[in-house]
Simulated assay, not measured.
Amino acid sequence: MLRIGDFSKLSRISIRMLRHYDEIGLLVPESVDCSSGYRYYSEGQLMLANRIDALKSMGFSLSMIAQIMMTCKEPGDLKQYLDLKQAEMMEQAEKIDRQLLLLETTIRRLGEEEYFMEYSVTLKEMPQRTVASLRKIIPAYDQEGLLWGLLTKELEGQQVQLANPCYSLAIFHDEGYKENDVDVEIQISVDGSYQDTENVKFKTVPPVLVASAVYKGGYEQITPVNQAVAAWIRDNQYNLAESMFSIYHVSPAIDPNPENWVTEVCYPVIPK
Rank of each mutant, 00 (worst) to 15 (best):
V184K: 12
T204A: 15
T130S: 15
T122N: 12
A211P: 00
I222K: 00
T152Y: 03
Q227H: 15
L155W: 05
V214R: 15
E175W: 10
A230L: 10
E118D: 12
E179Q: 15
V208D: 02
S193G: 10
L209F: 14
S243E: 00
A213Q: 03
P206N: 01
Q227D: 13
I222L: 09
V229F: 06
L155K: 02
D196T: 03
L123S: 07
K216H: 10
Q195S: 13
T204E: 15
V214W: 12
V210I: 11
Q195R: 14
A230Y: 14
T130K: 15
A163E: 06
M244V: 09
A211C: 12
C166Q: 14
Q143D: 11
N180C: 12
P206Q: 11
L150E: 11
Y177E: 08
V184H: 04
G111P: 02
Q158I: 00
D181Q: 15
Q143I: 10
P207E: 07
H173F: 06
I137L: 09
V182F: 12
F172A: 01
E112F: 03
K124C: 11
T197M: 01
I138W: 00
T197F: 02
E156A: 11
S133I: 03
M126E: 14
A132F: 03
G218V: 00
F202K: 05
Q187A: 09
Q161E: 14
E144F: 09
E175Y: 09
D191I: 07
E144R: 10
D191P: 04
A211Y: 05
M244R: 05
V225C: 01
A163M: 04
G176K: 13
A170C: 12
E156C: 10
N239P: 02
L162K: 08
Q128V: 05
Q237A: 13
V225I: 03
G111E: 05
A163P: 01
K136Q: 15
A228Q: 06
G192H: 08
N199V: 12
W148Q: 06
G192M: 11
Y177T: 03
Y194E: 04
L134P: 02
V131A: 01
Y194S: 05
E118V: 02
Y219P: 10
Y215H: 00
P139Q: 08
Y219V: 08
I188G: 08
I188C: 13
G157W: 09
Q221A: 13
V160Q: 08
E118Q: 09
R234P: 02
D196L: 02
D196H: 06
E175D: 13
D235N: 11
V229W: 00
